[in-house]
Amino acid sequence: MAGIKVHGTTFSTATARVMATLYEKEVEFELIPIDMRTGEHKKESFLALHPFGQVPAFKDGDLQLFESRAITQYISHEYASKGTPLITTDTKKMAIQSVWQEVEAQKYDPVASKLTFELAVKPFIGMVTDLAVVEEFEAKLGTVLDIYEKRLGQSKYLGGDCFSLADLHHLPTMDYLMATRTKKLFECRPNVSAWVADITARPAWTKVVAMRTY
């Protein structure tokens, strides 16, 4: 197997998304640390891997990719026979999973990422959290989670009865938010709360979390 290299940082939600997928698929990889504090991601050497200067950048042999969700799709298809099945070949089930992957990317992530920045990133780098922004985006997240609560009353996971990329893609921001005041929005909804407990306890995800160093 060609050596897989993930250029990024364990604190990055996008990098963590890719790493979780690789661990679920039981595919070996090498993490190449990128020091974003010194602007390494904006240097020419890194821009050759990711033209937008963001992490992660991904290489599998002569294949070079960026954008975390595109990378997780590639991993899930290329290594379909290994580890956890994160996609399906059943057309109708695939369509349903795709819907909820889009919901994560278009509805959940913009809100969750803003809250993660305000409640997790800002305190870590010494900035002041804007509580007005937090309240605004917690209301928006609550609206999304109301829909999740109904969906998770119909199936164990968002994409159906099996864990898939539709669930995995939520893990990085969810993990940060569950250590903040926003966790109450997840915990007060029984179906959502059970889903969060389930997917955050997956061995692949615990490996990602264990790799963070402070």
Rank of each mutant, 00 (worst) to 15 (best):
E138A: 04
D146I: 00
I147G: 07
F137G: 11
V134N: 13
Y148P: 11
I125M: 09
K150R: 08
V144F: 01
K150Y: 01
V134D: 10
G126Y: 04
V144M: 06
M127G: 10
T143H: 05
V128P: 02
K140S: 05
I125Q: 05
V134R: 02
F137M: 10
E136T: 13
A132P: 08
A132T: 14
L131P: 10
I147T: 13
D130C: 09
L158N: 09
V134Q: 10
I125S: 08
E149Y: 00
V133W: 01
K140F: 00
I147N: 13
E136K: 13
E135H: 13
E138G: 08
E149P: 02
T143M: 04
K140A: 06
T129L: 06
L152Y: 03
A132F: 03
P123C: 01
T129M: 12
Q154D: 12
L145D: 09
G153Q: 07
E135D: 15
E136A: 11
V128W: 01
S155T: 15
M127K: 15
Y157R: 05
R151D: 06
F137S: 08
P123M: 02
G126H: 07
V134S: 05
V133I: 14
L141P: 05
E136P: 08
G153L: 02
K156T: 13
S155L: 00
F124Q: 13
S155M: 06
V134K: 09
V144N: 10
A139I: 02
I125W: 01
G126I: 03
V133H: 08
Y157S: 03
F137R: 07
A132E: 15
D146P: 09
E135A: 14
E136N: 14
V134A: 12
K140R: 12
D130T: 11
V144H: 01
V128Q: 15
P123H: 04
P123I: 03
K156D: 14
T143R: 07
E136W: 00
V128K: 14
A132Y: 03
T143Q: 12
V133D: 13
K150Q: 12
E149S: 01
E136I: 02
T129P: 09
K150A: 11
K140N: 09
E138F: 00
Q154N: 13
I125L: 05
F124T: 14
F137V: 09
T129A: 12
E135G: 15
Y157G: 05
Q154E: 15
L158M: 13
G142Y: 01
E135T: 14
F137E: 15
A139M: 08
T143K: 11
L152W: 02
K150C: 01
M127C: 11
L145G: 11
A139C: 06
G142C: 04
S155E: 13
I147S: 13
D146T: 11
L145M: 07
Y148L: 06
K150W: 00
F137K: 13
G142N: 11
G153C: 08
D146H: 02
I147A: 14
E149V: 00
E149F: 00
